[in-house]
């Protein structure tokens, strides 16, 4: 029986590598998540945020992916080392996933109501009628207009926002304890995105499900998250409560990412960017992976900095943090050069 004091999900030292690649694409990722909590994993393409989510769901094809290390304890079981049959029992029941593009993740040949009902029948052993009633109830809960009619429609007959709602309905049909959403609103228009975010927040409050949300949009993070993990090139570089991340950012990558975003205030000149690009997987540095783009980098960054605690659960992987201390000697160093 799961221990009530334990967190709902505890991921320790998750590392994933592809084929014969010399470096890990997800490298030593550790996360904890309590019931009802929302964790946003934020980062740019290739940072490993989606791989992390897929690995937790057991949806990563292995091979070519290889699990190098890690445990993911969820309700007393290790998701990463579970027999496939057991995993299938958990997936869609205790935990569920929402994907970015509902058009490609809903079955185009099956009616929407039937797809939702299938999840209920599979996990609850419900009868046909019971499952259909549950599907209808779910469509109402995600506020799809004319739900009775929509039950018998195919995904292509719905708009993008509606399909995403149907997807959420399917994911929540069995009251999962954990919901993983990978860029759930990225494909949607901004007004529809606002509706779907509001909906997800409301449903989560009702059901007390924990949510891991993968996103690249810091605006979405500020709106949804309790906790944030910032990933860069496969590693978590900074993590902590959402307020700490936005109001007291410590890692140069987090700061660079925030300053790269155009401000919503009156125009304030050029954007302060992060120079260069993410190093390719076959040229990943041994030490801090951000060092090649970091304006604060020095010789000691050739060694990987640990994720150290800065108080209140705010953890940062940077030798220079807090930057105020680092900036002074660095500037004299720069002047001497």
């Amino acid at each position: 029986m799961p221990d009530d004091a334990a967190p709902l999900l505890e991921v320790t030292d998750l590392s994933i590598r592809f084929g014969k690649a010399p470096t890990n694409l997800v490298d030593g990722v550790s996360l904890t998540l309590e019931r009802g909590e929302t964790l946003c994993i934020v980062g740019e393409s290739g940072c490993g945020k989606s791989l992390t989510a897929l690995a937790l769901m057991g949806l990563l094809p292995m091979p070519p992916a290889r699990l190098m290390s890690g445990r993911a304890m969820f309700e007393g079981r290790d998701l990463l080392h579970l027999p496939i049959a057991e995993l299938k029992d958990i997936r869609g029941d205790r935990m569920a996933m929402i994907f970015q593009e509902p058009m490609t993740s809903l079955n185009p040949a099956i009616k929407v109501g039937e797809q939702i009902a299938e999840a209920v029948r599979r996990h609850r052993g419900a009868s046909h009628e019971e499952a259909r009633a549950r599907a209808l109830e779910m469509l109402m809960r995600v506020r799809i207009p004319a739900p009775e009619k929509r039950l018998d429609e195919y995904p292509h007959q719905m708009s993008g926002g509606m399909r995403q709602r149907a997807m959420i309905a399917m994911a929540l049909a069995n009251d999962p304890a954990l919901l993983i959403a990978d860029e759930p609103t990225t494909a949607l228009d901004v007004t529809v995105q606002a509706q779907v975010l509001d909906l997800m927040r409301n449903l989560q409050a009702e059901s007390n499900a924990a949510l891991i949300m993968i996103t690249h949009d810091l605006g979405v993070v500020a709106e949804m998250a309790d906790k944030v993990a910032v990933m860069y090139a496969g590693r978590i570089v900074e993590a902590g409560p959402v307020k700490a991340i936005f109001d007291d950012p410590q890692h140069p990558y987090t700061i660079g990412l925030m300053s790269s975003m155009p401000d919503l205030g009156p125009r304030g000149g050029r954007l302060v960017t992060i120079p260069g690009v993410v190093p390719p997987a076959d040229a990943m540095p041994e030490g801090c992976r951000f060092a090649s783009r970091c304006p604060f980098a020095g010789p000691d960054c050739a060694e990987a900095p640990p994720l150290s605690d800065f108080g209140g659960g705010h953890r940062v992987a940077c030798w220079r943090a807090p930057l105020e201390q680092a900036a002074e000697p660095l500037q004299t160093l720069g002047g001497a050069r």
Partner: peptide, 20 residues
């Protein structure tokens, strides 16, 4: 628009370091 004071301070440090 705008940032918290601590964030603003870091942001300026970052900008200065980028310029250097």
């Amino acid at each position: 628009a705008g940032r918290a004071p601590a964030a603003e301070k870091r942001f300026n440090l970052y900008r200065a370091a980028r310029a250097t």
